[in-house]
């Protein structure tokens, strides 16, 4: 595709802190290269703001190669913008045309309070992982790799689930603000493997209890999460989570 430059109007959510009432601010940027990434657009805009003596826009970013799950922008009404199976950092400006207006908002969720501008607090995900997203291993020397035989299909499915980068686009996109794709992926990647067996049942019960406690919504199988997930995590993982929860619930001797 041919390289081109564009002038853009940006409407960006600005919010001082979690208690402040935020609002949209409009900014003009010019001479933006079609080869830039979306976060580089923000770097350019922030340099412009600093030069003008204004407060730069706070946004989350880390690896900038689509694997860390830090970037989290709701761009023109879609999590991570218009490209599918793509993170904000890997969204390139060739997705836009000269003269476009781009609206950027933070993830909107009760469980992800806005900390500043486009940065939200996703520690609710960390607490869900802490509730059961781990396995027990013996201490001592590390076991040889591939010492435990695992069916190829299970290994593949576990790997697909483990591709989740925990960015929160599923929650941001879900009309119900549900985190079930994230939790489904995290439960699945361990439930499919022998290493996950010891805590299999308590994991399902505890992670789901924590998910509910954090104030996420409920899944109504709209499947918007799967469509917007940058890693293409399948809703089959939600079904697996439902199975795990059902059987764990039936086996549990308390409650």
């Amino acid at each position: 595709m041919e390289h081109y430059h564009m002038n853009l109007t940006l409407k960006i959510w600005r919010q001082k802190n979690s208690n402040a009432k935020g609002n949209f601010e409009t900014y003009k940027v010019s001479n933006i290269s079609s080869e830039m990434s979306f976060l580089e657009l923000f770097d350019v805009l922030n340099e412009q703001l600093i030069a003008e003596g204004k407060e730069p826009i706070a946004f989350d970013h880390d690896c900038r190669e689509g694997i860390c799950g830090a970037c989290s922008m709701y761009i023109n009404g879609e999590a991570h913008g218009p490209w599918s199976k793509n993170t904000t950092c890997q969204l390139h400006m060739r997705a836009f045309k000269d003269g476009d207006t781009i609206v950027v908002e933070p993830w909107r969720s009760q469980a992800f309070p806005v900390l500043k501008d486009l940065v939200v607090d996703r520690s609710a995900f960390d607490r869900i992982i802490q509730a059961g997203g781990y396995i027990s291993v013996n201490t001592g020397n590390a076991v040889d790799a591939n010492a435990i035989p695992i069916d190829k299909k299970d290994a593949d499915d576990a790997f697909m689930a483990a591709a989740c980068i925990g960015c929160g686009a599923c929650v941001a996109t879900c009309p119900n603000g549900s985190a079930m794709l994230f939790v489904g992926a995290k439960i699945s990647q361990l439930a499919l493997l022998p290493q996950g067996e010891p805590e299999r049942e308590t994991r399902a019960l505890n992670m789901i209890a924590q998910m509910d406690k954090e104030g996420f919504g409920n899944c109504t199988n709209v499947y918007a999460c799967e469509a917007e997930c940058p890693k293409g995590i399948s809703v089959a993982n939600i079904a697996r989570m439902n199975r795990e929860y059902l059987s764990a619930g039936l086996n549990a001797d308390t409650k």
Binding site: Y74, E105, G177, G217
Partner: peptide
């Protein structure tokens, strides 16, 4: 479901394009 899911997103999106990712009747 309706009441819990409503409170899961107290601040709504100014611009949202759900038609890009899901069926209207599912929503």
């Amino acid at each position: 479901l309706w009441s819990q899911n409503r409170s899961a997103r107290p601040v709504r999106y100014a611009v949202n394009r759900p038609e890009k990712n899901s069926k209207w009747y599912s929503r």
